Simulated scan of single mutants.
Amino acid sequence: MSIDTMAPIPSASAEGSTADALPRTRWAAIVWGAVFATLAGLGLWLLIDRDRSDAVADWALGMTPGTITATVLLCIGALVLVSGAVGLIRHAQRRHSH
């Protein structure tokens, strides 16, 4: 490919004020990454010790249908909460950039 056939690079004056703008921070990735890292750390902490691992197994085997339903609803609520927080952060970031 020769240099003559390449598309021209836009100049800084053509870009206007976007040349001075900083790249956007992807807050959703940071928040979800922190949530998953926390869950992974908690899982490792629970499973690394034999006593804690046995306690988790006893707790899981002793769950009733009501506690299973409550746990599932709690997990769904936590996902909705994190999603809402990410949405608020994104909204604030967009409002701040304009």
Rank of each mutant, 00 (worst) to 15 (best):
M1P: 07
S2W: 13
S2K: 12
D4R: 12
D4N: 09
D4Y: 12
T5L: 09
M6E: 13
A7F: 13
A7M: 07
A7V: 13
A7W: 06
P8S: 12
P10D: 13
P10V: 14
S11E: 03
S11L: 07
A12I: 11
A12M: 15
A12K: 11
A12W: 01
S13E: 13
S13N: 03
S13H: 10
E15T: 07
E15W: 10
E15M: 13
E15D: 11
E15H: 07
G16M: 00
S17V: 04
S17M: 08
S17F: 06
T18H: 05
T18L: 13
A19T: 08
A19Q: 12
A19E: 07
L22W: 01
R24S: 08
T25D: 07
T25G: 09
R26M: 09
R26H: 13
R26L: 08
W27R: 14
A28K: 12
A28L: 07
A28C: 03
A29S: 07
A29P: 00
I30E: 06
I30F: 00
I30K: 08
W32Y: 11
G33H: 04
G33E: 01
G33W: 06
A34E: 10
A34H: 04
A34G: 04
V35L: 15
V35E: 02
V35K: 10
F36N: 02
F36C: 04
A37L: 10
T38R: 01
T38N: 03
T38A: 14
L39W: 04
L39Y: 01
L39F: 02
A40F: 05
A40I: 15
A40M: 08
A40G: 03
G43A: 10
W45N: 03
L46G: 07
L46Y: 12
L47M: 01
I48D: 05
D49I: 09
D49N: 14
D49G: 06
D51Q: 14
D51E: 12
R52D: 00
D54E: 10
D54N: 12
A55S: 13
V56H: 00
A57K: 02
A57R: 10
D58K: 06
D58A: 15
W59E: 01
W59F: 14
A60Q: 00
A60H: 03
L61R: 07
G62K: 09
T64S: 11
T64L: 04
P65I: 02
P65G: 10
G66Q: 14
G66S: 13
G66A: 15
T67Q: 14
T67F: 05
T67P: 04
T69D: 05
T71D: 01
V72D: 00
V72A: 03
V72L: 03
L73R: 13
L74N: 13
L74Q: 10
L74H: 11
L74M: 13
I76R: 04
I76V: 15
A78W: 09
A78N: 05
A78K: 09
L79G: 09
L79A: 14
V82I: 15
V82P: 05
S83D: 03
G84E: 04
G84P: 03
G84T: 15
G84Q: 12
A85W: 00
A85C: 10
V86S: 11
I89Y: 06
I89M: 11
I89A: 15
R90P: 01
H91V: 07
A92P: 00
H96K: 15
